[in-house]
């Protein structure tokens, strides 16, 4: 099966600690995305997001700086290995610069996930943190 890598860099209007918690705290993740998330931030622990559409396992956690996880969806090809998703966080003008590198993504599904990151994460995250800031 042909696989590919997704590379995106985005500015989220929140500090790195908030963004880190947004990815690793299921209650915040659920509020942020609108889809239920489960799990806890511990290396080796499993997590789910978007009502079980996304499942995975934390591989490396560097608080407020870096998250590495195995990541796949319910649409993943039968028998295919999970993708490896790495998120690095750094302070930047306007918030936090999130660099996403996702390897071993099934090539024929990659366009869906490229759009999915934007529509299902970056947009709701930007809206969520802007709303939090205005409270």
């Amino acid at each position: 099966m042909k696989t590919t890598t997704i590379r995106q860099a985005v500015i989220i209007p929140a500090d790195p600690e908030q963004v880190y918690r947004g990815f690793t705290n299921p209650a915040i993740h659920s509020a942020m995305t609108g889809g239920k998330a489960t799990g806890h931030a511990e290396v080796g622990a499993e997590f789910t997001a978007w009502d079980g559409y996304i499942t995975g396992r934390y591989r490396r956690l560097e608080p407020h700086r870096r998250i590495v996880m195995d990541w796949l969806t319910s649409e993943w090809p039968e028998g295919a290995r999970a993708s490896r998703l790495e998120l690095t966080l750094a302070p930047a003008a306007g918030g936090t610069r999130v660099i996403l590198t996702q390897t071993h993504v099934p090539a024929d599904q990659a366009p869906n996930y490229q759009t999915g990151w934007q529509e299902s994460y970056w947009e709701p995250m930007a809206a969520y943190f802007k709303a939090q800031a205005s409270r």
Binding site: T4, R7, Q8, A9, I12, A110
Partner: peptide, 10 residues
Amino acid sequence: SRFTLVEELD
């Protein structure tokens, strides 16, 4: 857009 994004394509 509602966010700033730079994406490298294949």
